[in-house]
Write a protein that binds this DNA or RNA. Structure first.
Lengths: 181, 181
DNA sequence: CGCTAATTTCATTTTTTACAGAAAATTCCG
DNA sequence: CGGAATTTTCTGTAAAAAATGAAATTAGCG
C-alpha cells in the first residue's frame, strides 16, 4: 500500500507541493518528490500517477526535472521492465543538490550579466556615477556571497554540521564581535 | 532624466525583473525595486509608471509589496503632495530583509506544519516507521537550519562580513576538519 | 467642509504556466 | 526484425497569476 494513503503522509505531500510553487518548482514536481521521499521502496511512474492522480506525461516531466536536480535517481528492478525511482533521503545532500542547481540556473547567469554590464559601464563616460556604483556593488556582493557558498559547500558534511550547531558562537573567532545587532 | 534611459540601467532593470519571477516576486515588483535601487532620488508613483510603462494600479501594488519586505520606504518631499519612494541601497540590509521576510512567509509555516504532523504521527501507531522518521527528520533539519539563520543574522554586520570573507577558513576552528568533500 | 489630487481596491482582461491526452519514439523481448 | 510495453515529446486546453482600467476611497489644501 502506498504511503499516500496515510493522512499525515498525504498532508506532507500536499504541503510540499505548495512549497514547491514558491520555491521554483511546480506543484507536480514537488509532489512527486515528496512521495518518493516518503516511500521506502522504488516506485514506477504508473504508481506515482495513481498515488497523486497526475497524468503520465506530467509525471514523466516531473521525474526528468527531479533527476536534473540530482535528487531522484532511476533504479532497476530485476524482472521488471519499467523504470523505478528513488529519492535522496539524506537531507544534507538534498539541500546541497537543490541549492547548487538553483545557483547554476539563476545566480550564475546573473553574475555573468552584471559583470558584462560592469565592463560596458566602465567605457561609457556619460553614465551617472551612482548607477555604475550601484550595479558594480551588486555584482560584487552577489559574487562574494556566491564564493562563500562555494567554499563552504566544499567542506566536509560533519564540519558543516558542527558549524551549524555552533550557530552564533562562530563569532567568537572574529576579533571585536561581542555584540549582536 | 530617469536612469531607465541609460541602456545598462535598463538592462539591469529588465534582468532584475526576470530574476524576480524566479524568486518569489512578480516582474513588476522586481522592476520597480530595480528602478528605485538605481535612482539617486526619491521617485513618485507616476514617474515609476512612465519609466517602466506599467499601470498606475500595478505600481501601487508593487510599492506596497516592497514596503512589506521592508526594502522600500515612503518619503515626503516638501511642497509636493505626492508620495515618493526610495529603496534600501545597503546590500547587506537588503539581503537580510528579503531573507527574513521569505522565512516568515514560507519557512515558518512549514515548520509549524511539520511539527503538527510530528505530534499526530507520534499518536498514530499503524503509521509505517519510516514515514514518521522521514517527516520527523525533515522537521528537525529545517528547524536546525532556521535556528542557525536566526542566530547568525543577529551578529553584527561587520562580523558577518568578516566571516564571509574567511570562507572555508572558518573550518579551522572545528577539530578534525582538514578535508574537503 | 468641499473640492481636487493622489492612492488604493476591485472586477476584468491578458499573459503565463501547468497539465492532460494524443502521437511519436524508444526499449526490449521473443 | 516484429511487436508490445514503456517512456517521452508535442500540442492544445485549463488553471493560475499578473496587469490593466475604472470605480471607490483617502488625504491634503483652500
Amino acid at each position: 500500500m502506498g504511503v499516500e494513503k496515510y493522512p499525515e503522509a498525504l498532508e506532507f505531500i500536499l504541503h510540499w507541493g505548495e512549497m514547491g510553487t514558491h520555491w521554483g518548482a511546480n506543484r507536480s514536481v514537488a509532489q512527486v518528490h515528496a512521495l518518493l521521499f516518503l516511500s521506502d521502496q522504488p516506485l514506477d511512474a504508473e504508481a506515482i500517477c495513481e498515488a497523486l492522480d497526475l497524468a503520465r506525461s506530467n509525471v514523466s516531466t516531473a521525474l526528468k526535472e527531479l533527476q536534473g536536480y540530482g535528487i531522484v535517481r532511476r533504479t532497476h528492478i530485476p524482472g521488471d521492465r519499467r523504470d523505478h525511482f528513488v529519492a535522496e533521503t539524506e537531507l544534507w545532500d538534498l539541500f546541497m543538490a537543490i541549492t547548487a542547481e538553483r545557483k547554476r540556473r539563476e545566480i550564475d547567469p546573473t553574475i555573468t550579466k552584471l559583470g558584462e554590464l560592469k565592463d560596458r559601464m566602465a567605457a561609457n563616460k556619460d553614465l551617472p556615477a551612482h548607477v555604475r556604483d550601484r550595479i558594480g556593488r551588486m555584482h560584487e556582493f552577489i559574487s562574494t556571497l556566491t564564493s562563500w557558498y562555494e567554499q563552504v559547500r566544499g567542506l566536509k558534511k560533519s564540519t558543516l554540521i558542527s558549524l551549524m550547531k555552533m550557530g552564533a558562537k562562530v563569532a567568537r573567532f572574529i576579533p571585536g564581535s561581542k555584540e549582536a545587532t
